[in-house]
Simulated scan of single mutants.
Amino acid sequence: MLRDYYPAAATAWAHLPGGLTRPEARLILTAAPTPTQATRLTRRRLETLLSSAGRTRLITAEATRLHELFHVRALRQPAEVEDAMGRHAAALLTQLDATIASAHTLWTHIDAMAEQHPQTPIYRSFPGMGPLLAARLLAELGDDPHRFPTPRNLRAFCAATPITWASGTSHKVSHRRKANPILAETGHLWAFATLTRSPGARALYDRRRAAGDHHPAALRRLYARLLGSLHYCLRTGSAYDEDRAFTASPEPEPETEHGT
């Protein structure tokens, strides 16, 4: 919607984590929901809004950047249309604020509940495993350490192993697409997060990319390896160990996926 009448606001925070969901973005858009109102914001007013939103660093530089951006000449909608779209945007911002507040409340509750579970320290000991990912995995896998007899059973349940199709001389290995969507998404996020937190995970990912795997396939291979370590830790009640996970007795890797 902003691209249709307020392009400066659509791009002002696009390069920053969170984008329009950032507190300063929502507060400034609430104060100036139209480009005409944005041009009336002084640098001092922008600094005040940034401070009110919780920003503590580079306030003057950020206020100057936004002030210059809001004063760049651009095509405008007719005044009446711009005002109507601004009111619509303000209503949407109210809904966005409520959604973010509800999500934060839910996240806090989930984190508090998960911390009470005895298996949470095991999950959190893994690299890249934040409180939300740990709670998701714990909720989907359950807390029975003997639910999955082997690591292969756990990988299959989490869609981390490919499917092999064989008929006569035909043989095809493909990605398992029908799976629990929460586990599939969690695995992708978890494996991606380990790339900057675990040297062993990064080395495995790089080897798979060098062997011809695309990015999603390499992450699934890494996810499968992490699940093997998680299975062992849950069965033995031990915390994650980087050396044992990636250097001691590496497990055989599954077959190469084709067409991913």
Rank of each mutant, 00 (worst) to 15 (best):
M1R: 08
M1G: 12
D4Q: 15
D4T: 13
Y5T: 08
Y6G: 01
A10S: 12
W13F: 15
A14W: 03
H15W: 08
P17Q: 11
P17N: 13
L20E: 11
A25V: 00
A25W: 02
A25F: 02
R26Y: 02
L27D: 06
L29Y: 09
L29R: 06
T30I: 01
A31H: 06
P33C: 03
T34W: 09
P35A: 02
R43C: 09
R44M: 07
R44Y: 01
R44F: 00
R44A: 15
R45W: 04
T48Y: 12
L49D: 05
S51K: 13
G54V: 03
G54R: 13
G54I: 04
R55N: 00
R57F: 07
R57G: 00
I59A: 04
A61E: 14
T64S: 11
L66E: 04
E68R: 14
L69T: 11
L69D: 09
L69W: 10
H71L: 07
V72C: 06
R73T: 14
L75M: 10
R76T: 07
P78C: 10
A79V: 14
V81T: 15
V81Q: 05
E82K: 03
M85P: 03
G86M: 07
A90C: 05
A90F: 10
L92K: 11
L93K: 06
T94Q: 09
L96G: 01
A98F: 02
I100D: 10
A101N: 04
L106F: 06
W107R: 09
H109W: 07
D111A: 15
E115Q: 13
P118D: 13
Q119K: 02
P121S: 08
Y123A: 04
S125R: 05
S125P: 01
F126D: 04
P127T: 05
G130W: 05
P131Y: 12
L138K: 11
L141V: 15
P145Y: 03
P145I: 08
H146F: 09
R147W: 07
F148C: 04
P149S: 05
T150W: 10
P151T: 13
R152P: 01
N153Y: 03
C158F: 06
C158R: 02
A159V: 02
A160T: 06
P162D: 12
I163A: 13
I163Q: 14
A166W: 03
G168K: 07
V173P: 00
K178Q: 10
N180F: 03
P181D: 03
I182L: 12
I182Q: 11
A184M: 10
A184R: 15
E185H: 08
E185S: 07
E185I: 01
A193Y: 04
A193W: 05
T194Q: 08
T196K: 14
R197P: 06
R197Q: 15
R197H: 15
S198K: 11
S198Y: 02
G200E: 09
A201H: 09
L204I: 04
L204D: 01
R207G: 10
R209T: 01
D213E: 11
P216V: 13
A218L: 02
L219D: 05
A224M: 09
A224K: 02
R225S: 10
R225N: 07
L227G: 12
S229D: 12
L234R: 12
L234T: 01
T236V: 00
S238P: 00
A239F: 04
A239W: 01
Y240V: 03
Y240P: 00
D241N: 14
R244Y: 07
F246K: 00
T247Y: 06
E251D: 13
P252I: 09
E253S: 11
E257N: 01
E257H: 02
H258F: 08
G259R: 10
